[in-house]
């Protein structure tokens, strides 16, 4: 501990850099919101495939979720960074690339959450609905999904928070979000300790209220079986 206090802290460069860091934080928020919205849509589509009666739909959905959940997001991001320009032979904007990589990763987790939510609803509910003459789709929409939502919402909240932090990884392909700005600043000022302290605190200030919100969601949507 002795030497941490002996170290001469110098935060002089930070105030001037603050607007840049905040701009980075705004980009982090944008990335999170856009990715989450796209992931809810894609996750729903893949979940429908995953629960389909047809093997030809079930299998690709299964392969997709397992592949994306068992490889590191960082590897996926870098992979897309190399693959996309080569495949399409054009310069794709890094922002689009980052969003695509994040979305494909997060959607795999969202799919599993949707599936777990739907399957956690008692079978009898669906069977009863079908026996009263509802079609498969109506039973799903009116009976199963409303009950599944209670279990799904808190889990989606947890995905949201981990996505918020994971957006820091797209710094490596050059998207100017908070982590990217932090790394640039550390290099420019030769003050990595101070810079990463401030960057970490900024992340904490942004994420912690969300964690508190998540705890509230867990309380509110607690399922009593």
């Amino acid at each position: 501990m002795r030497s941490l206090f002996a170290y001469t802290w110098d935060f002089e460069a930070i105030p001037d850099a603050m607007p840049l860091l905040l701009e980075g934080a705004w980009m982090t928020v944008k990335l999170t919101v856009i990715t989450m919205v796209l992931s809810l849509v894609l996750g729903f589509v893949v979940c429908v495939m995953r629960l389909s009666r047809y093997r030809a739909l079930r299998w690709p959905a299964y392969a997709y979720t397992e592949l994306f959940r068992t490889t590191p997001l960082l590897v996926q991001i870098i992979w897309f960074f190399f693959v996309l320009p080569k495949t399409f032979d054009i310069n794709i904007d890094v922002f689009a690339m980052g969003v695509l990589a994040l979305t494909l990763n997060v959607s795999a987790f969202v799919t599993e959450i949707f599936r777990a939510g739907i399957q956690s609803v008692d079978r009898g509910q669906r069977e009863a609905a079908l026996s009263t003459g509802m079609t498969e789709w109506v039973a799903m929409r009116r009976i199963v999904i409303p009950q599944a939502v209670r279990r799904v919402v808190p889990l989606l909240g947890a995905v949201w928070i981990s996505l918020f932090k994971d957006t820091s990884l797209v710094a490596v392909i050059g998207i100017h979000e908070l982590m990217f700005e932090g790394r640039e600043l550390a290099l420019a000022t030769y003050r990595p300790v101070e810079t990463f302290t401030v960057v970490s605190l900024l992340y904490f200030a942004l994420t912690y209220p969300q964690s508190l919100g998540l705890n509230w969601l867990y309380e509110r949507y607690r399922v009593v079986d």
Binding site: L4, L169, M179, G182, A186, V193, T207
Partner: peptide, 18 residues
Amino acid sequence: RSTPLFAQLLWLFYVLPI
């Protein structure tokens, strides 16, 4: 849990020696 691992690793990398 409220800060990215990426930020923590870089921080630690510079702070640990100090």
